[in-house]
Structures are given as C-alpha cells and as structure tokens.
Simulated assay, not measured.
Amino acid sequence: MKSLANFFFEVGMLKRTPRSGFQFLGSGAESVAEHSYRAAIIGFTLARLDEKADVGRVLQLCLFHDIPEARTGDLNYVNKKYVQVDEQRAVDDLAETLPFGDDYRELVAEFSVQESHEAQLAHDADQLEMILALKEYKDLGNRYADEWYPFSVRRLKTDTAKRLAESIWSTDSSRWWFDDDEDWWVKGRR
C-alpha cells in the first residue's frame, strides 16, 4: 500500500508541474494535471464519437500519458531541441513500484508510438486541449495564438479531431455560459 500512496503523491506533483510552452506564448499558465484532465474529457468524447474505439483504453492513455512529467518536468518544443530526457527510465523506475507496472509501461509506450487507433485518438485529445487553450488566450488578446494554431492542427491524426479543431477555432470561448435571454441578465431570474 505504501508504494500506491507514493504513486498518488507523485501524480499529485502534476498539479504543481507547469506546462512550459506558455512561457513562449507570453501569457497563460496551466499545470500538467489541468491539461491531463481536460485531455481525458476530450479523449472520452472523441472515443464516443468513434464507433470503433475502445473508450476505456482512450481514457487510460489520456490519464497516464503525462505521468512521467512528475519526474522529468514538461519540456516544450524549444526545450526538446536541446535537452534529452530519459523518459523511459522515469517510466521504468515508477513501474517497478506499481502492482500494475507493466500496464503503465504499456500505456505510455502505446501513446508514444501512436500506432493504435486509441493512441491516435488520445494524441488528438492532447492536441485539442492545447488548441482550446490557444483559443482561450486568443480571445483574451494574445496575438501569438494565431501563429501556433496551424502547427497544432497539423499534428491531428483523425478527421473528427480536425473538424472539432475548426469548430473550436471559430467559437468564442467565453460564450458557452452566456445565453441570449436578456431578461435573465437584467433581472437575474427567469
């Protein structure tokens, strides 16, 4: 049980591990845990829209793909040009302590290789989460988000994710909660 308690504490580090790409965007902040949570919801959605996908597998891939970053940190594309991380060692070291260590290794490897349909959906969920964040920052005035968007779209693998990205980019991120019932916004009741 102690190794599982340690695992849960390690996963908790992701709440305090910042996603480093926002440094280059010039605005925004997000933890790896925040990113992983929304990516899992997106992955669930993509898998449900796909008749062939194993929804549970996509969720597992989304939830576990960034756990190594509790040990390695999050490296953005600039960092990756210069820093070489031994992610496999981080995965193996953690896996040795887990009763499901082989499952964990398999999930991280499957996500990395991106050959299975489920891994492609999980990868798309990961990228769509970034596209959502970019759109949110664009709507708040970050002019660089428009430059990043095309690169994120080019990473998408499935047609559903590509269509969803277009819809995300054309949707005002702050309007999901605002309906057009003027009486509500004036009187505060229906």
Rank of each mutant, 00 (worst) to 15 (best):
G21L: 13
Q23M: 12
F24G: 06
S27W: 13
E30P: 04
E30N: 13
S31C: 10
V32A: 09
V32R: 03
E34T: 10
E34K: 06
E34V: 09
E34Y: 07
Y37L: 08
A39H: 02
A40C: 07
A40R: 06
I42P: 00
I42F: 12
I42K: 00
F44D: 15
F44V: 08
T45N: 15
T45K: 14
L46T: 06
A47W: 01
R48F: 13
L49K: 14
L49A: 14
L49H: 11
D50T: 13
E51N: 12
E51R: 14
K52H: 11
K52D: 15
A53P: 00
A53K: 01
A53I: 06
D54L: 09
D54V: 05
V55H: 01
V55D: 02
V55C: 03
G56C: 07
R57K: 07
R57N: 05
V58N: 04
L59S: 01
L59A: 07
Q60Y: 00
Q60W: 03
Q60S: 06
C62Q: 07
L63A: 14
F64I: 15
F64G: 05
F64L: 15
I67Q: 00
I67R: 00
I67G: 01
E69W: 05
E69T: 09
T72H: 02
G73S: 04
G73Y: 09
G73N: 04
